[in-house]
């Protein structure tokens, strides 16, 4: 394929194809019937990155906002679903297993179509506008957050369950023997320790979530991908615009990578990782861990 591109379009196109094969193919597809007609306009690429329009900034905001809220919903649901799966009470187990089974077993795309358009078409449920102080949350955004969150919860359930199972059963017994209830034991003893195991895969999930929000273009939400898709419709600068779009996503996921590393440090308290003396001290200060120096008066 690269070789044929080389013959048709010359060295420069072929090199780009080597670097960004996928994007090059899209570009080639756009101009396939008129060879040489695609004229790269670099300002579309650079402007989208360094002088982004309000629409792009908005799109980034929506993508990040929806991702964060949907992930939060997913984690909360995941914790409950995990506890449900491990409950002694059979109906809890049944509900949790059914939930995970359905939402992991069907495509997110289908869930979006069914729960947004499907329910409204059948007039079973109409997604409302939520008025939250000065801003209105549009029905499609609400639906997007809820469906993404519920879908995510099904995946988080297994991650959280694995995290809980990784905590030494002796911790549970120690907490119980001190008179703590099941809820207190979970909240204060088990989940904080499970968090250390949960956070690396959770980071993966959130990375995925940032990218998966692009499916919300289906609900006419102008998040990052749909914004660029819209710009493309008017300018047809497909190559430049989606190149820039990819860079934006890459930037978001990269920033998240740094954030995740900090969070992992925070939850490594009291484990072997936190024991390597001075190195930890420096890093601890960099990531704002609590400083106990002031308390050592005795």
């Amino acid at each position: 394929m690269t070789l044929s591109l080389y013959r048709r379009y010359g060295t420069r196109r072929a090199l780009l194809a080597g670097c960004l094969l996928f994007i090059a193919l899209v570009a080639a597809g756009c101009s396939s019937d008129k060879p040489g007609a695609y004229n790269i306009r670099p300002q579309y690429f650079w402007d989208s990155l360094f002088n982004p329009s309000g629409a792009i900034v908005n799109g980034i905001g929506l993508t990040v906002g929806i991702s964060v809220i949907a992930q939060f919903v997913g984690v909360v649901l995941g914790v409950f679903a995990a506890m449900g799966k491990m409950a002694k009470f059979l109906p809890f187990r049944f509900v949790a297993n059914f939930y995970v089974w359905v939402f992991r077993g069907t495509p997110l795309l289908v869930q979006l179509m069914f729960f947004f358009y499907g329910l409204q078409a059948a007039q079973i449920f109409k997604w409302p506008i939520i008025v939250a102080g000065p801003i209105d949350i549009l029905p499609e955004i609400l639906a997007g957050i809820v469906i993404l969150g519920v879908n995510e919860g099904a995946y988080m359930a297994e991650i959280v369950r694995a995290g809980i199972l990784a905590v030494d059963p002796g911790q549970n017994e120690a907490a119980k023997s001190l008179g703590m209830t099941y809820g207190q034991t979970m909240r204060r003893i088990v989940l904080p320790q499970a968090a250390r195991v949960i956070i690396p895969p959770l980071g993966n999930e959130f990375n995925n979530m940032l990218k998966t929000t692009s499916l919300l273009s289906l609900l006419s939400i102008f998040e990052l991908y749909n914004t660029f898709s819209n710009l493309n419709a008017s300018s047809l600068a497909t190559f430049e615009l989606f190149g820039a779009c990819a860079v934006w996503y890459l930037l978001l996921t990269t920033i998240w990578g740094f954030v995740q590393a900090r969070i992992e440090m925070r939850f490594a308290r009291g484990t072997a990782v936190s024991n390597d003396g001075s190195d930890w001290g420096l890093r601890a200060r960099l990531v704002g861990l609590r400083n106990n120096a002031g308390n050592q008066g005795h």
Binding site: A174, Q193, F267, G270
Partner: peptide, 12 residues
Amino acid sequence: GMVFQRFNLFPH
């Protein structure tokens, strides 16, 4: 009060 063979202090 209970004291365990393996201490079971809360490591966090």
